[in-house]
Design a protein around this nucleic acid. Structure first.
Lengths: 239, 239
DNA sequence: CGCAGTGTTGAAGCATATCAACTTGGGTGG
DNA sequence: CCACCCAAGTTGATATGCTTCAACACTGCG
C-alpha cells in the first residue's frame, strides 16, 4: 500500500526490511479526499502527517486579494506534510487537485522513528530536503527563466518524479492540472500561460491533451528546459 | 562561539546542556572567506557542513546565459549547507556577500548526532524545514506579490531573523547587499529594483542607506508587506 | 587625481496582466 | 437521446509592468 513511498526511498538508498515493516506498521488510518477539498488547512495543528498514496495535490497560499500561489505539487509517494511534525503549525494549505487517497502517520510514531531508527530518520529528512531543492529550482524558474523554459522544466521535473514511483509509461504520464492551476504554479495569469503554452507547442517537444502529457523527444526537451536532475538526488548512496 | 546557532535553536525549543556541549565539541575547524568567494561550490561533495558565524551569504544558481538567481540569504547562526549531509552533492553554490567567518562540522559527526541525540536531530531537521518555509514564502513573493510588497516582505523577514540572533538594535540592522544582489534575490532587473525601491521610499516605511536598514514603523511595514511571521516558527515548543 | 563599483535616470521596446467575448467538450436532467 | 449548462480553453485589444541600453552622478580608495 505504501509501495510508492518505498520506491521513492529506495531511489536514494537501500531500505532494510525492518525499516519497511516499521513504516507499514505505523499507518493508523486511510482517508479519501475529493477534488478541491483541503487535505490539510492553513493554520491547523495536525497531530499526524499525510502520505499521498494516489492522486495529485498542491501546497498553496492565498493572499488578501484572493490570488493564489501554488508552492509545490505532490504526487503518489510524497509525504505532503511531513514537515508539520517538527514545524507544528501549518503555514499553508494543501488541496486535492484530483481525488486523493492518503495514509496517516501519527506524529508520536514519527517521533518514535527518530528515537529508534536513525537511518530511516535520515531518509525521511532527505525527503523534506528534496522538497527544499525543488523549491529552489522553482524560484530559479520564476525569477530567471523564460516562461517557456520554466514550463518545460516543470514537465521534465514531473516526468522524473513520476517515473521514480512507476507512474509513467513510455514518455507519457498523467498530468491532470487545469491551465488555471498551472498558472497558479508559475505565478502568471491564465491568459499568458495559455499563450506561452501555444508557443511551446510549436516546438514539438511534448503534447498535453486530455489530462496526459506525452514527451516526444526527451533529449531535446531536457536541453530546451535546461533541466539537470541532480537536484532530485536520484542516486543510491549511504545516507 | 556558536552562540548565534544556540540562540536560533532556543527560539524553537529548550536545548539541554548536553546538546549544547555536543555541538560545541564537534566544531573541527574555523575558516574565513572574503567577499565574492564561494563558501561551497556547485557540484561539490562536501564532507562537512558549514555554520555561518558572522557575515552574510547567499545560495545561488547561475544559468547558461550568465544570469543569476539567489535562492536564499544566510545570516549568523544559519547552517548554510546542513542539507548537504543527506543530500551529498551540492546542486547550487553559496557565496559570501560580506567577509564571512564559519565553523565546519564533519558529516560523520552530524551522523553521530542522528544516532545518539534524536531531539537535537529534530531541532536540526527543523532548521532545514524552516529554510523550506522561507523558500515557499519567496515563491509567493515572486509569483503573486507586487515588487514593492515583495521587497518590504523581505525586509520584514530579515529583521525578524536577525532579531532572533541578536543582530538588530532598535528598528535597525545591518543589510550589506548591493542593489544588484537584491535584484538577483527578487529575480528582476537592477533598474526595476531601483525604481521599485524609490517608490517604496515614498511610503516612509523604512530607510536603507550605507548598508543599514532602519524600520520607521514596524506595524505599518508588516501590514503593508502582508507579513505574518508564523512561517518562521518562532515559538518554543517540544519538538 | 583617477578609477571602479554602485546608484540613478530617461527612452524605447518587449512581456505580462486585465477585460471581455467566444468556443469547445463532457456531464446531466428533461 | 437530445438540449442545455458549466467549466475549461482560446482569442484580441488595451494598459501596465518590466527589461534593456546608454548615459551620467556619486563615493571610496589606490
Amino acid at each position: 500500500m505504501i509501495e510508492s513511498l518505498l520506491l521513492k526511498l529506495e531511489s536514494h538508498d537501500v531500505v532494510s526490511e525492518d525499516e519497511k515493516s516499521v513504516l507499514r506498521s505505523l499507518i493508523t488510518q486511510q482517508k479519501h479526499f475529493s477534488v478541491d477539498e483541503d487535505l490539510v488547512t492553513e493554520g491547523s495543528r495536525p497531530s499526524y502527517s499525510t502520505l499521498l498514496l494516489e492522486g495529485f495535490a498542491a501546497r498553496y497560499k492565498v493572499l488578501e486579494d484572493g490570488s493564489r500561489q501554488i508552492t509545490s505539487l505532490q504526487v503518489s509517494g510524497d509525504f505532503v506534510d511531513l514537515h508539520a511534525f517538527p514545524l507544528k503549525i501549518m503555514d499553508h494549505g494543501i488541496v486535492a487537485l484530483t481525488p486523493c487517497r492518503v495514509a496517516l502517520f501519527d506524529h508520536k510514531d514519527i517521533n518514535l522513528i527518530t528515537e529508534k531508527f536513525p537511518h530511516l530518520t535520515r531518509l525521511l529528512w532527505l525527503q523534506t530536503l528534496i522538497d527544499g531543492a525543488i523549491h529552489r529550482e522553482w524560484i530559479v524558474g520564476m525569477g530567471r527563466r523564460s516562461k517557456k523554459t520554466h514550463l518545460s522544466h516543470l514537465i521534465c521535473e514531473l516526468y522524473v518524479r513520476l517515473q521514480v514511483v512507476g507512474q509513467t509509461s513510455g514518455g507519457s504520464f498523467n498530468f491532470p492540472l487545469t491551465q488555471s492551476e498551472l498558472a497558479d504554479v508559475m505565478g502568471i495569469s491564465i491568459v499568458h500561460l495559455n499563450k506561452s503554452l501555444q508557443m511551446l507547442r510549436q516546438e514539438n517537444l511534448f503534447t498535453w491533451a486530455s489530462k496526459a502529457v506525452n514527451i516526444l523527444d526527451w533529449e531535446r526537451l531536457a536541453e530546451y528546459a535546461d533541466f539537470n536532475p541532480l537536484y532530485l538526488n536520484l542516486s543510491i548512496e549511504a545516507r
